[in-house]
Design a protein around this nucleic acid. Structure first.
Lengths: 215, 215
DNA sequence: GAATTAATTGAACGTTCGTTTTATTAATTC
DNA sequence: GAATTAATAAAACGAACGTTCAATTAATTC
């Protein structure tokens, strides 16, 4: 056989990406074979090479697009001309929503960095650093404005990001907690952690979590 | 050739363990070959199988001993009959000290779980859960005693552990911050995060970080 | 409807993998 | 110092790996 009826390059490539994210998240990049991936897509191994010249190209594409998506999501969610507390709240909400929605892709982007070539690793890390820089700026602005009490901006940013991203390790949609509840709790913990003393105006129903932000 | 002069089983096994932790942390379990490991130790691949019957046995041994070490470290560090704030402080200090000291082993234990058989994975996760349970108990006791203000004990415990363990991702000994400074900052952030309102009596030099614990 | 392009199969390549087997030598025991 | 045990080397096993190549068929273009 050769070309199959109804075959479509775009659809196949999309199927490859989706299957790859899931398989790599579950098995790890090194442990996933191109044969397994092909079987999951329902295609012969050789067909994969029409879309991705090497296995590493596939990994890099997934990672790059994940990071681009994260930066774009924050660009769209970032509030303009507001106080640091509101900005921090927006950052936390965007971060958690994005990562819960893309658990598998986040897993891949965080765990498989060592499988990239040096050049491509640098490229991904550059994007990650840019994203973290946004948080550091919010924290610095807030500290200077007296809205936060922070020891070390860089250290606090890393601690917050690791805390928030950690959500994907234990959170499962549809279990004990809803996304809104989780987000509310993390928002509350974040505000306490940075010593936020000024209300950020939003009167959302965080329950006890909301009260903790020193409204 | 065969047995080499001066060869010693205990020393070789120790060398294998140490090299394995470093190689797996750097390359990943799947990416590290037994041949690479043997070369690092200065031995032929077949010699490894005298000490570890399979590659997975080697991984499991490293992980199990790491987790046992963590539980033992906490057992030794856990203060008896003190207030929840002091207990939490001890937990944070022990956790960070242990993880900074064993960065590579922690990396292995956290990242390579999926390479274990189901049975062994369960065994490791049981130890991990037991360790996390200790933190949850401290948080619950503190919340009941009015020393902490916590939304959700389980969620807070996960957030704290992920935040603390994250230290190994960015911390490098001998760079900008000392271990004491990092520990102080994390202690401060932890106490704020859980809404600690009672001093825990220790007057250590955390600087501004210490002040933040509402002394 | 012929020519061209897109999509895929099937088979194979050389390499590397974890592991086993057998032989050999050093250290220890008696 | 002979017998035994401990520790390794050397070579090989079959299986799986990422990838390539040529052939083949579906869809599209003209």
């Amino acid at each position: 056989m050769a070309r199959t009826t109804g075959s479509d390059g775009e659809k196949t490539e999309a199927a490859v990406r989706e299957a790859a994210v899931n398989l790599i998240a579950r098995l790890g990049y090194e442990a996933m074979s191109m044969r397994q991936l092909a079987a999951e897509v329902g295609v012969q191994p050789a067909a994969l090479y029409r879309y991705f010249p090497t296995k590493e190209d596939l990994l890099f594409t997934l990672m790059r697009e994940h990071m681009e998506g994260l930066l774009e999501a924050w660009s769209a969610a970032r509030p303009a001309n507001t106080d640091p507390v509101s900005q921090l709240a927006a950052y936390v909400e965007n971060h958690i929503a994005f990562h819960i929605e893309r658990r598998h892709a986040t897993h891949v982007s965080n765990m498989e960095l060592r499988s990239l070539s040096h050049e491509r690793l640098t490229q991904i890390l550059k994007m990650r650093t840019a994203y973290e820089k946004e948080l550091r700026k919010i924290l610095r602005d807030g500290a200077e404005a007296g809205a936060f009490e922070i020891d070390d901006t860089g250290l606090t940013a890393m601690a917050l990001i690791q805390m928030m991203t950690g959500v994907i390790v234990w959170f499962r949609p549809g279990e004990r907690l809803s996304i809104a509840e989780v987000t509310g709790s993390y928002l509350s913990m974040t505000m306490r952690l940075v010593g936020a003393t000024i209300s950020h105006g939003t009167a959302r129903p965080f329950g006890r979590a909301g009260d903790a932000v020193a409204l």
